[in-house]
Simulated scan of single mutants.
Amino acid sequence: MLDPLTLLALGAVGTLAGFVDAIAGGGGMIALPALLSAGLPPVSALATNKLQSVFGTGMAALTYWRRGFVSLKALIPAIAFTFVGSFLGAMVVKQADTSLLDIAVPVALIGIALYFLFAPNLSDADKAARLPFGMFVPLMGFAIGFYDGIFGPGTGSFLTIGFVMLFGFGLTRASGNTKILNLTSNLAALAIFIPAGDVVWPAALAMGIGQLVGGYIGARTGIRYGAKLIRPLVVVVSIALAVRLLVFR
């Protein structure tokens, strides 16, 4: 049983995680260690992290959508494919060997950080897409959703880089669409975790309240400052995630 002071601290952590996640992804890097430090078993911490992040990701997604950075109609096929991919990933996670991901994911995250750091034309302006949106965004959603169901770290960074590199989105629009698909993948995983009784509800709700605040403020901040804030924060979050995966395993 978690005491009130611990729940209050988790709520504060949820606010910070929601703020960072709304702008650049990677909120789980802050929330998951806090849950483990509070004494939750690893599976319960993972499940609780998924639920608490839904609050912040949902608030951020709603804020980006209301400000016109997301077309839900265009994303419907990708939402469906992302849900299926994440659900399947969560189902097979216990049978899958994820040891290769321990190295491959940090390397990919460092590559993303270098791209955002040195690419000369990253801005909020949309550019020509390299792939047709309607055909390939659902495939991207399925693949990254499957990864999120199995492993998870860096999902937001991978989605953002996909929207920017493959589909020509400006950074703020890419962040908004990333929130929609990230929310979808979290909900799909919870369809496995909640019936199994893995979620610690007091912790999830305490952090969820903080996530609502942090997600709203983070999304408004990302919209206000755009690429000049999103770009460096994606670099910092990607490198921090890579270091955590490589060093603190």
Results as ranks from 00 to 15, higher is better:
residue 8 L to Q: 05
residue 104 A to Q: 00
residue 146 F to S: 10
residue 56 G to I: 00
residue 30 I to W: 04
residue 218 G to C: 07
residue 25 G to C: 03
residue 177 N to F: 01
residue 188 A to E: 07
residue 225 Y to H: 14
residue 99 S to G: 11
residue 232 P to D: 10
residue 71 S to I: 03
residue 8 L to A: 15
residue 115 Y to E: 08
residue 51 L to I: 02
residue 6 T to F: 06
residue 217 I to C: 15
residue 7 L to S: 10
residue 8 L to N: 05
residue 111 G to N: 08
residue 108 A to Q: 03
residue 14 G to P: 14
residue 80 A to I: 15
residue 224 R to S: 14
residue 214 G to T: 05
residue 144 I to R: 11
residue 178 T to Q: 09
residue 120 P to I: 03
residue 248 F to T: 00
residue 215 G to D: 02
residue 102 D to S: 14
residue 127 K to W: 04
residue 220 R to F: 12
residue 102 D to W: 10
residue 55 F to V: 04
residue 57 T to F: 08
residue 249 R to Y: 05
residue 34 A to Y: 03
residue 235 V to I: 15
residue 29 M to I: 13
residue 222 G to T: 02
residue 216 Y to T: 13
residue 50 K to N: 11
residue 210 G to S: 10
residue 39 G to C: 01
residue 151 F to G: 05
residue 115 Y to L: 12
residue 126 D to H: 09
residue 140 M to N: 06
residue 9 A to W: 12
residue 94 K to W: 09
residue 152 G to V: 12
residue 234 V to W: 01
residue 106 P to D: 02
residue 54 V to T: 15
residue 81 F to Q: 10
residue 196 A to W: 02
residue 232 P to Y: 07
residue 94 K to V: 12
residue 34 A to T: 05
residue 175 S to F: 02
residue 186 N to E: 09
residue 8 L to I: 12
residue 86 S to H: 10
residue 116 F to K: 01
residue 152 G to Y: 09
residue 99 S to W: 07
residue 218 G to T: 01
residue 48 T to H: 02
residue 16 L to K: 04
residue 80 A to S: 14
residue 152 G to N: 11
residue 204 A to L: 10
residue 79 I to R: 07
residue 118 F to W: 15
residue 33 P to L: 04
residue 183 L to V: 11
